[in-house]
Simulated scan of single mutants.
Amino acid sequence: MMKNENKIKLFLVDDDALFLKSLEIEFLQHADFDVETYISGELCIEHLSHNPDVIILDYHLDGINKNAMNGLETLVEIKAINSKIPVIMLSSQDKIDVAVNCMHHNAFDYVVKSETAFMRLQNIIDTIFHFQKMEKELNWYMDRM
């Protein structure tokens, strides 16, 4: 099966099934996304071979199962496997130290769960692809110098 080049493959990772579903529906209404959802960091990492373009990762993944990997541990693991995948962290808490900690571990950005979260996520994803496109063009140009 050929990958549809125009679709952005998105991993959504959250142990809040209701939030996960509503986020998935939001993204699927915008046809340029191919969405895979996971309720744990472990499952996300197990499926990294599916080569997501972007991962949206909940900070509190151990809310239901205390022994589950939390978002930060999952982020570290993802980056160890493939440092190039942009990871956007999601949290229900607007805490600066949490945001700083995520950025310190190479998260691309940090979004607080709210009514505007989906719009923010979309804007960040646009930014990621804008940067990647610029980077490609720059590399293409540099190769020819």
Rank of each mutant, 00 (worst) to 15 (best):
I8K: 01
H30P: 00
I25N: 10
F108M: 05
I124Y: 11
N51L: 06
Q122M: 10
E36C: 13
D126M: 04
E26A: 12
L12H: 06
D109N: 13
P52D: 01
M142N: 14
F129N: 02
Q29R: 10
I78E: 05
V98Y: 12
N70Q: 10
D15Q: 03
N139Q: 15
E77V: 08
F11W: 04
M145I: 15
F27W: 07
N82W: 04
D16Q: 11
V100G: 10
I25M: 12
R144K: 15
L28V: 11
V76Y: 07
E115S: 11
A17R: 10
N67D: 15
W140P: 05
K133V: 05
Y59N: 09
S49T: 07
M2W: 07
L10E: 04
D94E: 09
E42K: 14
M1F: 09
D109C: 02
K9N: 07
F19T: 12
S83T: 08
E36K: 11
D14F: 03
H50S: 01
I39Y: 12
L57H: 02
D62G: 00
D143N: 15
K66M: 08
D53T: 01
K9Y: 03
E73K: 10
N67P: 00
D16W: 03
I64D: 07
G41L: 00
R144V: 07
D58I: 01
D62P: 03
V111S: 03
H104T: 13
A31H: 09
L57T: 02
K7Y: 00
A117T: 11
F19L: 14
H60C: 06
D15F: 04
K3Q: 10
I88V: 13
N6V: 00
L23P: 05
F27P: 04
C44P: 02
Y110K: 04
L23S: 12
